[in-house]
């Protein structure tokens, strides 16, 4: 069993989810509230990773982060090594790849919030940020939880993007799905089966826990 690959995958998924939480919550809130006409463009860009083959996304990220690109070159000057074929590069690609899985549930949750609750908070002296943390986030919690779980699980199982950006460096970019692929290539079906079973059971357990929790939350305070 390739425990190193499993650990790396979990680390990548956790880091990706954390970044998506920080980026995705403000983006989703903005999408749910803006009356700007160009909103559809942003929504379409956010949703692109759902329909694009991971290899296409991986290819563009590879080009954008490679040593020839401004981003890759700047990163190399700052940290002494390139972005591609590293954990950090993988993280950037994973964030893009899982963006819709975080932003869409977040935005859906914010969109159903009664706007007057926010206005009530403003009239009670709460600023925009305080209102977000004291009213919006607690009420949108089921949707936020869904987004967290989906982006975590989605990152855990990614394959094509990793292959394009990360390659197959043990301990650095060799994730669980790559490990399974290698095991199958080596005709080691027993090992591939074990690793796959772990991923399957883990994913199912996480989703089950989420939906069970969500049901309890939703019953606790129905959002009108």
């Amino acid at each position: 069993m390739d425990w190193q690959a499993i650990r790396l995958s979990v680390e990548l998924a956790a880091a990706t989810t954390a970044v998506l939480l920080a980026l995705g919550l403000p983006l989703a809130y903005w999408l749910a509230r803006t009356r700007w006409r160009g909103r559809a463009i942003v929504e379409a860009i956010v949703a692109l990773p759902i329909v694009l083959p991971p290899t296409v996304l991986g290819f563009y990220v590879l080009v954008a982060l490679g040593p020839a690109s401004p981003v890759g070159a700047a990163w190399e000057r700052l940290f002494g090594q390139g972005l591609v074929f590293t954990f950090e590069g993988l993280l950037v690609a994973s964030v893009l790849y899982s963006l819709p899985f975080a932003v869409q549930p977040f935005a859906a949750a914010f969109a159903t919030l009664d706007r007057r609750l926010e206005e009530a908070a403003w009239c009670l002296g709460a600023g925009r940020l305080a209102t977000f943390f004291k009213v919006c986030l607690p009420l949108a919690w089921p949707g936020v939880l869904t987004g967290i779980v989906l982006s975590f699980a989605h990152t855990l199982g990614e394959f094509g993007v990793v292959l394009m950006i990360g390659g197959n460096i043990p301990g650095e970019t060799r994730t669980i799905s790559i490990a399974i692929y290698d095991e199958v290539q080596a005709l080691d079906y027993a090992a591939a089966g074990r690793t796959s079973a772990i991923l399957l059971v883990f994913s199912f357990a996480v989703l089950l826990a989420t939906y069970a929790l969500q049901r309890r939350f939703v019953q606790a305070w129905p959002v009108r």
């Binding site: 007057r116 403003w122 009239c123």
Partner: peptide
């Protein structure tokens, strides 16, 4: 902004915080 007007607002359906 509403935060700085010192106004109390009672909404039609009261807009109490359900949580």
């Amino acid at each position: 902004p509403p935060q700085r007007r010192g106004v109390g607002f009672v909404f039609q359906d009261y807009a109490l915080f359900p949580h």
